[in-house]
Amino acid sequence: MTNPPTTALVTGATSGIGRATAVQLAAQGIHVVVAGRNAERGHEVVAQIRAANGRADFLEADLHNEETAKRAAAEAVVLAGGRIDILVNSAGIFPFGPTAETTEEVFDAVFDTNVKAAYFLVAALAPLMAERGAGAIVNITTMVAEFGANGMALYGASKAALGLLTKSWAAEFGPKGVRVNAVGPGPTRTEGTAVMGDALDAQATLGPAGRPGTADEIANAIVFLATDASSFIHGAILPVDGGRIAV
């Protein structure tokens, strides 16, 4: 990016990794549009950021298709004062389970949220960034997009698609000044993964770190890729998984 970023849209920002990312970006002086489905939690994030003298606004958005994505993009541009410099695609759902027990409804919901919404957000915002010659997009994938895992076929496949899109978008928009990268989290302790219980810790013991990560640790990497500290990085998928895919 040729100029320091001043605005960001973070989806899935009302909890977990998205929330931590929104708070960290705001701490760097970036005006953050906090997007999510839960208005109560969204306003709490905004209040937290503003209490620390940051700038933030809440955008209620249930992202699942072209219409909802493009509407959210347009509303975010208005809330941010006319431009979005950073897009973080953090919204996602992750139902786990056997392939034979997956319904078509669940299949469609996972790909609609994890792939289609991100695709059309990029379609709406990346060309605007390219017109200005600067911008950064960070997608959130997962370590199980890199290897087979029992019960995670659907979730892993959706995030693997997002990983390939990351590289394709880097090739498409990088020459116009828009950097596109991704972060691949491993086992991370958040509100959403609390239902995994001991299974989360068991998964984490398979990596060198031997423990689950925190939302802030994942957000550190996202903010790195979203800002000028990573100005020469394009099309990368940065594993932040305690070393799990390295062993």
Rank of each mutant, 00 (worst) to 15 (best):
F107T: 10
T227A: 09
G163E: 14
E146I: 07
R244F: 15
Q48Y: 03
I30L: 03
G81W: 02
D241C: 04
N38Q: 10
I237S: 08
H64V: 04
P5L: 00
S230D: 06
A47F: 07
V88A: 04
M143N: 14
F94L: 13
T142W: 00
A157I: 10
A35E: 05
R41E: 12
G12Y: 02
H64G: 13
A39F: 08
Y155S: 05
E67G: 12
E191V: 12
E101S: 12
E105V: 13
V183E: 04
V183H: 07
A73S: 10
A76Q: 04
G42F: 03
T193I: 08
I222H: 01
L164Q: 15
G97S: 01
F107M: 12
V77R: 13
F111E: 03
T6S: 15
V88I: 09
I245T: 15
V247Y: 14
R50M: 12
I245A: 13
G148S: 05
A56P: 02
R189P: 11
G81N: 04
G210T: 07
D62G: 09
Q203H: 14
A130H: 06
T193E: 09
I86S: 00
T193R: 08
A149C: 14
F94M: 13
V46H: 06
V138M: 00
I84H: 01
E172C: 11
E131I: 12
G151Q: 02
V78A: 15
H234C: 11
E75H: 11
A149V: 13
G184D: 12
G12V: 04
A170G: 09
S231H: 15
A123P: 02
L87C: 01
S90M: 09
N220S: 10
V247K: 13
D216C: 07
A35I: 00
T11H: 02
R83W: 01
P239Y: 07
L162S: 04
G18M: 00
A73T: 02
A8N: 01
V180N: 00
E44F: 12
L238T: 04
V45Q: 09
H64K: 12
G135D: 03
L164S: 14
A100D: 14
A76M: 03
A221H: 07
G97Q: 07
E131S: 06
T99Y: 15
A199N: 09
I30H: 00
N89V: 02
V183C: 05
N220R: 08
I140H: 05
T227D: 07
S168Q: 15
L9Y: 03
G16R: 01
A20I: 03
S90F: 08
A61N: 00
P4T: 13
A149Q: 15
N181P: 07
G177H: 02
D216S: 10
V34A: 04
G18K: 03
G213R: 03
I84D: 00
G97E: 01
G97N: 02
T142Y: 03
A61I: 02
A157W: 09
V115M: 06
M196N: 06
L9D: 03
L154Q: 01
D112A: 10
L59I: 00
V23Y: 10
V106F: 05
G81L: 06
R50E: 15
A47N: 14
V183D: 01
E172P: 08
M1F: 07
T102A: 10
T68V: 05
I86C: 07
N53D: 15
S231N: 14
A171Q: 14
F232M: 13
T190L: 00
A13Q: 01
R55D: 14
E131D: 12
A153Y: 11
